[in-house]
Write a protein that binds this DNA or RNA. Structure first.
Lengths: 214, 214
DNA sequence: CGCAAACTAACCCTTTTGGGGTAGTTTCAG
DNA sequence: CTGAAACTACCCCAAAAGGGTTAGTTTGCG
């Protein structure tokens, strides 16, 4: 062990969870939480400013989500080890996270003691993955590239965004106002996303999407 | 204040969140966490055994969810005050929770200090609701439509049948062939069912329906 | 730098959708 | 028996959706 404690930054929009995590970490010698952020934007700034040893990053956040935050951090040259922390089930996001430079992917519902172990291991430079996750990753790697992460990945950000709005029942006009673009443009995106997904109408798209995220 | 501390039971399948909550509560005089459960089944047994003053119940749990647990507790004669705790946004579940006997509905992402206040108020016998929730409840009560009876019951058999096909993404023409009636007739049924459900398009209907049967 | 992709927007056109109406048949409760 | 409701089907019409094209701007990559 080194003489100075390892610095850890927490990014999660749930104050309670941050509190729990911080308290858990404080129990351990050699670990110190040097910053807490509740959103991606703050996290970006803090990460560059403090350059912590480890960043624990929530995947599901309001505004800029964890994956986006991760990507931007790496783009900005942040070299801290970054571990994604996420609720519940084995997401397909794990592949995206790893390819975008995450050093680990842990589930929030794991045993606290085990979580602490994993945090230690992450700081030591190892890649840490929850049990349930390793399988997902394994099967993902077994299939070299494509079929893993659903047809959603074939869509551009805008298309995915619009698909989500369609899945809320919105019309092109409403979506246009929501995104502040013309409804003609929305139609273009809808057209493209339908073609990419092999669907024939926005209704099919809505149903598909709603069933997609259970 | 009474002389013995108020007993609190935590039910949540996230150990971390339980930890954070427990730590938060321990800071407060007069409050004591007497039990923690990670699932609904355990919670049912513990609740009857310990009869705590307050049960804090996670809405989103694996297995038996919070609402089901709540209902069964009340069915079993548990008289503890029960406050639902849930992630993020203003669900419509709040109505179900309240009608099923919940004494409060709080969001996990609220400020910890405020949460503590609310817990105190709940123990004092008050109903506690997060800011965002009061609105939902208000609008829900403003429409005394049908608490449980679902708007589906207002539809005729044919309309319900067609709604289900819409929820599979089918167009009027396809539905017509499926049911062996003219597409003009399908349009009539769609028209009626949209009106009855207060929706503005088949997309909204599809989304509503898919979300309806989980 | 040059090129590809994404995003934007407009044009054209056909099909689909949804709202209004009338109207015939059947079925079922009062 | 009478009447209401459901189901059927058509009419008209305006709006929305979707498919095709062209085209300008920006962004990122080699």
């Amino acid at each position: 062990m080194s003489d100075t404690p390892a610095s850890i930054m927490l990014v999660d929009d749930h104050p309670l969870l941050r509190k729990g995590l911080k308290q858990l970490i404080s129990l351990e010698d050699g670990l110190e939480v040097v910053a807490e952020c509740s959103n991606g934007v703050d996290a970006l700034a803090k990460a560059e400013e403090l350059d912590p040893d480890l960043i624990i990053l929530d995947l599901n956040m309001q505004g800029m989500d964890g994956l986006e935050t991760l990507k931007r951090m790496r783009d900005n040259g942040v070299t801290s080890r970054i571990v994604m922390l996420t609720v519940s089930d084995a997401d397909e996001d794990v592949v995206t996270a790893i390819t975008n430079g995450a050093d680990g992917y842990l589930l929030k519902d794991m045993d606290p003691e085990l979580l602490l172990d994993q945090i230690q291991r992450a700081i030591e430079g190892k890649m840490v993955l929850s049990e349930a996750i390793t399988e997902v990753l394994a099967t993902a790697l077994r299939r070299p590239s494509a079929p893993t992460a659903s047809k959603l990945d074939g869509l551009t950000n805008r298309e995915r965004e619009i698909l989500e709005l369609i899945a809320k029942g919105m019309s092109n006009k409403v979506i246009a106002r929501e995104l502040d673009i013309s409804d003609g443009t929305v139609k273009v995106h809808v057209k493209h996303l339908l073609k990419k997904l092999g669907l024939r109408s926005r209704v099919e798209a809505a149903v598909w999407m709603v069933n997609q995220d259970q």
